[in-house]
Structure formats: C-alpha cells, structure tokens
Amino acid sequence: MDLAATIVLNGLTLAALYFIVASGFSLVFGLMRVVNMAHGSLYLIAGYVGYAVFEPLYDQDAWYAWHAGLAAGILAAALAGALMQKILLGWMQGQELRQALVTIGVSIIVADQILAFYGGNPRQFFAPDSIFGSTQVPLVGGYPTFRLVQIGVALAVGVGLWLLLNRTRLGMMIRAGVDDREMLGACGINVPLVGIAVFALGAALCGLGGVIGSTAQPLAMGQDGRFLLISLVVVIVGGMGSIAGTAVGAVLIGLAEQLGQALFPTYSVVLTFVIMAAVLAMRPQGILGRA
C-alpha cells in the first residue's frame, strides 16, 4: 500500500514537471500553430544560464542564489523565445512545416553552442533550505519537499494560464488572434507583438520547468531531446493546444512512466507509446483537443 502510494506520488510530481514544460509548448502550438522543435533547447538555455547565475551566489552562501538562478533562467528562455519569433518565425506565419524545420535548425545550433560554452559536465541546482529536506506525507512517510513544491508550481501555472487567457485583456487579444488575425489587426492591435508575447510566455514556462527540473534531477546535454519528446507526447495525448488537455496528458504520462518502471522496468517506455498510439487511434485530436 505504501509502495503504491509512493509510486503514485512519484508519478504526480513527475507529471507536474512535465506539465510545466509542456504547457509552454502547448500554448505556443495552440495559439500560434507553431510546433516549436527548439522547445527542449529553451529548457537547456534556462538551465545553463540559470546555473551560471546560481553558482557564484551559492558559493557566497547567498540565501537568494536559487531564486536568482530561477529568475535568470526564465528571463533567458523568454528572451530566446521572443527573439526566435521576432527574427525567424514571425515573417513566415502560416507556413507551419517550414516553421517546424526552422526550429529544428535552431535546436541543433543551440545544443551545440551550449556544449561549446559550458562543456559536457552535468550540473544540478541546490534548492534553498526552505523547500529542501523532507515532509511527512500520509501513507508515504518522508517525501522530498521540493517534489511537493513542484506540484504546487504546476497548479499555480495551470490556474495562472487559465486566468491569463480567460480573464485578462492580453488573453482576450490572444484568443481573438487565434480565430481571426486580420480582424484583430484591424481593431488596432499590434498582432506581431502579441505573437512575440505568446512566444516569450511559452518559452518562460519552459524556462521555469528548466530550472525546476534541473533542481530535481541533473541537467545535462540530451535533456533537450528528452523534454521535447515529453512535450510532444503529452500534447499529442492530451490534446493539441488545450491547457486542460496538457494537464491530463502530463498526469497520464507521468503516472504511466512511474508505474511502468515499477512493474516492468525494461519495457516501461513501451507503455507510454502504447498510450499514445491508442489515443491517436481513437481520438486523433487528443483526449481534450478541439476537433
């Protein structure tokens, strides 16, 4: 019973991280119709830039080292995302396949340049004392506090995104842009700027995931491919462009991964893809996707 509860909690904390990263991917895809194959690269950028800020502060025992790293990582990712949209993707709006290819090119170059700048050694953030250590959880016992924080952050991201899209002026512009770009422009709104804002927001979410993910597990080359894959699978399963769908997809995939690893370790990867194939066969648009 305790073991089952631990596995479920592990699955949920993993799902929380997946949701944070994939929500940015889903946001950009749903609102801009851009498949950002460089999404994993944004994760790396946030992780490495954040760490470069974090490390010297941590060595001086500054209490805000982690927070500063988090802020730097998010900013770096958001800036990279905004630049990508501004310079490369904005002017080929509507050519979806070409945009996907461009982001693939960007991801190759970014991964290689990060390797050149920072080398291949893995890094890991240390969480601040306030969210470090373990917490007593019923049925499970002691459980790393940081992982529970992960769930809280994911919930905040989900609620925040919903509020932003449904309750603010910016959200209204974004939703209007999805349905009719030209009319939105005719209403006097700077549509390209809205696009850049969406891209920066999606990238910032990925950056948030990057620093949090690199606190929970080591940051190394190859993580970009891993998180791109996870974002793809989560969004395919949950529904393209739906935030609620992304949450459902993340929980399904996170749980499946942990359950699979506990029950049949060497075949656990297969479970994820069986789920994906099954969803595609029955609902090609994903569980909560709009047809």
Binding site: R33, V35, E96, L97, A100, G225, L229, L232, V233, V235, I236, M240, T266, Y267, S268, V269, V270, T272, F273, M276, L280, P284
Partner: peptide
C-alpha cells in the same frame, strides 16, 4: 489520420520511443 506538423510530431515521438526502448532493453 494525421497530416503535416501533426505527422511530424507523431513520427518523431515514435522514433524517440523506439530509440529509448532499444537503449534500455538489454
């Protein structure tokens, strides 16, 4: 049942799935 960028995403996901399976299966 998928086309264009959806197909791109799904085939990439399948490819990476087989890759990770092969990598972890002794």
């Amino acid at each position: 049942r998928t086309r264009d960028i959806y197909l791109l995403m799904i085939t990439l996901a399948l490819a990476m799935g087989v890759f990770r399976f092969v990598e972890t299966n002794i």
